[in-house]
């Protein structure tokens, strides 16, 4: 393949990225079959006839009725939801493997563009590597010195270093990114018949899940306020979403309780461990619940 052809096809691929898949692929394949085999001069001539890739993409977009765009675009809704959930929290349910399966789902999907797939895949490892690198260079210990809190599972001792927290935040961030991009591609965000814009829904979910960690208590309260101000969920869902304890609040409660309860040196009773784990698992359950309920309303 000659040089002008390669450059033109690359530009064309970028231009049609936002178009639904069968059409985008057809355009690129149709023009590729026309340009390949031509020498540089002939290709240049043909490219001049074809015109600007952006104009080609714009013409295709005008020809696509907005209503049919989502159906042609991506995968079944459950597939998109499962992919987002696996990437967001799968790695905590089944360590590492859950996330890897999610990435497999992601690359097998038609809901996201290749660029989104790359971004969605890299967010977690890259941020983890950066934080790991910073910690290694600064020579800080990975396990927090001082009083060990046996009430909090040992990984959270590790978490003092920021690495686990980073992975949690990065996983949720990549899930939110994919969620927003999936909505954009499928055109679900635009109609907004029953619910709010996609970014609003995503913001509520993120604030409820980790807002309490980023800005203790205030972040979570902001999430609750936005939840009640939304049109995406029913009142029952809002009550359930509010009653479930915030992640940040639950965690700080545990850290505090662990110290006050004197569980620094010895193992706490099984009942207390169960409560601790439940407190930490609940926000994830709530997150999944609200995500699923938000989607059901949109059908």
């Amino acid at each position: 393949m000659t040089d002008p052809t390669t450059a033109y096809l690359a530009k064309l691929e970028r231009a049609v990225r936002e178009l639904p898949q069968p059409v985008a692929g057809d355009i690129v394949a149709g023009i590729r079959e026309e340009l390949s085999g031509l020498d540089a001069d002939a290709a240049r001539e043909r490219i001049a006839v074809l015109g600007d890739p952006d104009a080609i993409a714009a013409a295709a977009r005008d020809e696509l009725p907005p209503a049919t765009t989502p159906a042609v675009g991506g995968d079944a809704r459950w597939y998109t939801v499962v992919t987002v959930l696996l990437i967001g929290i799968g790695g905590f349910v089944v360590p590492v493997v859950g996330w890897v399966v999610g990435i497999g789902f992601l690359w097998n999907s038609r809901t996201w563009t290749r660029r989104d797939k790359v971004v969605g895949t890299l967010i977690v490892p890259v941020t983890a590597a950066v934080v790991f690198g910073v910690l290694a260079v600064t020579g800080r210990a990975f396990v927090a010195p001082g009083i060990a809190n046996r009430l909090v599972p040992s990984v959270f001792g590790f978490g003092h270093s920021g690495l686990v927290l980073t992975v949690v935040l990065a996983s949720v961030a990549s899930a939110v990114y994919l969620l927003v991009r999936a909505r954009r591609l499928s055109g679900v965000a635009t109609p907004a018949r029953d619910g709010d814009a996609g970014w609003y829904t995503a913001l509520v979910l993120v604030l409820l899940l980790i807002g309490g960690i980023v800005v203790p208590y205030v972040g979570w309260i902001a999430g609750v306020v936005l939840l009640w101000g939304s049109r995406t969920w029913r009142t029952v869902d809002k009550i359930i979403g509010t009653v479930a304890p915030p992640f940040g609040g639950g965690l700080s409660f545990l850290l505090l309780f662990g110290r006050l309860g004197g569980y620094s040196g010895e193992d706490p009773p099984v009942g207390v461990i169960v409560v601790a784990w439940t407190l930490m698992a609940l926000p994830f359950v709530t997150f999944v619940y609200l995500l699923v309920r938000a989607r059901i309303l949109r059908r």
């Binding site: 069968p22 059409v23 057809d26 355009i27 149709g30 023009i31 074809l50 015109g51 104009a55 080609i56 993409a57 714009a58 013409a59 295709a60 005008d62 020809e63 696509l64 042609v72």
Partner: peptide, 13 residues
Amino acid sequence: FIASIGTLYPLLA
């Protein structure tokens, strides 16, 4: 009948 080759492919779809 069409403005550009871009119009053609959605039509063919």
